[in-house]
């Protein structure tokens, strides 16, 4: 057990170190991509906490992502807030939105849970369009460069942006690692594996799932807020159903219920699309085929399969 803990920490710290080094080694194009991927990976890690560890298949996470993004962007745009409080508001908004949705949606399970979350997200998207006077509707709005400075550091410049993304990613990953190795993390997994049994052991399934969903929402919210702030745009497309499917895709690809899976999945999926679109118009086909192939042949994803084949200690 002790040896495993050592291995686990070494691996995850090594990933962070490698990502830190990557900005100096990679050409600019790939460095910026990696910054995007790290923020999206935070979103996917949040999704993984709900889906991979707790077994909640949601199709409404775009609502939490967009809640964070707009809670960050709107106060800056309309009320001239500073970025730090705006970011914090984004984080909180994701959690609050997930809590509100969870209070209702968690009364259902399985397929119904999926459809209820989908409906809430759709209502959220339509609300953004409906309140276009305040939200900018489908066009969205630009987060002006002057508002993307934190303590004199320009987040729109490549190095600070990369470091900010890396900082967020590291915090998210270590937080996730801590969470899943904590007693509560084990209860989450127990809930996924056998809800009845955990109930008999004295855990309240509703409460456990709600807490997991709120944590998941916090991740999605802060990722949405960071994406808007680091890349300077807030728009309603981020609230569409595609952006609920995206983290699911990342998680499935990388391995549901693994700490590093979401990042690996986001990385693989991003470059799959990027490279495929260099060869063919039909990159949508590539995405579809990847989904089908994954679920057919590697339902546990990259890391899930590795874990089965020997790396049993992988968290």
């Amino acid at each position: 057990m002790k040896g495993e803990t050592g291995k686990i920490w070494t691996l995850h710290l090594a990933v962070i170190a490698a990502l830190f080094a990557a900005q100096f080694l990679l050409p600019q194009y790939h460095a910026t991509n990696l910054a995007r991927i790290m923020v999206l990976a935070v979103y996917a890690m949040g999704y993984n906490i709900a889906f991979g560890y707790t077994g909640l298949l949601s199709l409404g996470h775009a609502l939490f992502f967009a809640a964070g993004m707009y809670a960050m962007g709107l106060p800056i745009w309309q009320l001239e807030w500073l970025p730090v409080p705006a970011l914090i508001l984004g984080l909180v908004a994701g959690g609050v939105m997930a809590g509100a949705v969870g209070l209702l949606a968690l009364r259902t399970a399985g397929v119904s849970f999926m459809i209820v979350t989908l409906m809430f997200a759709q209502a959220g998207y339509l609300t953004l369009l409906y309140l276009n006077t305040w939200t900018g509707g489908d066009e969205g709005f630009v987060v002006e460069r002057a508002y993307r400075m934190i303590g004199g550091v320009d987040l729109a410049a490549d190095t600070p942006r990369y470091l900010a993304a890396l900082g967020l990613f590291s915090a998210g990953m270590l937080g996730c690692l801590w969470l899943v190795r904590s007693p509560f993390g084990r209860v989450m997994v127990a809930m996924r594996e056998n809800e009845e049994r955990s109930r008999m052991l004295g855990f309240n399934p509703f409460r456990v799932k709600l807490i997991a969903l709120v944590i998941s929402g916090l991740y999605a919210g802060v990722a949405g807020a960071a994406y808007g702030l680091l890349f300077g745009y807030v728009g309603a497309t981020f609230a569409t159903i595609q952006y609920s499917i995206l983290p699911m895709l990342y998680v499935l690809m990388g391995g549901a219920g693994t700490v590093l899976g979401p990042f690996l999945g986001a990385l693989a999926m991003f470059y799959l699309i990027d490279i495929a679109s260099g060869f063919t118009d039909a990159w949508l086909f590539v995405v579809g085929a990847a989904l089908v192939a994954l679920i057919l042949f590697a339902p546990k994803g990259i890391l899930g399969t590795l874990r089965e084949r020997g790396l049993k200690w992988l968290p």
Partner: peptide, 17 residues
């Protein structure tokens, strides 16, 4: 559900192409 989401993309792309 996941597989039919994949199917959705495949069919959409086929129609576009």
């Amino acid at each position: 559900i996941v597989a039919t989401i994949g199917l959705l993309y495949i069919l959409q792309q086929a129609a576009l192409t």
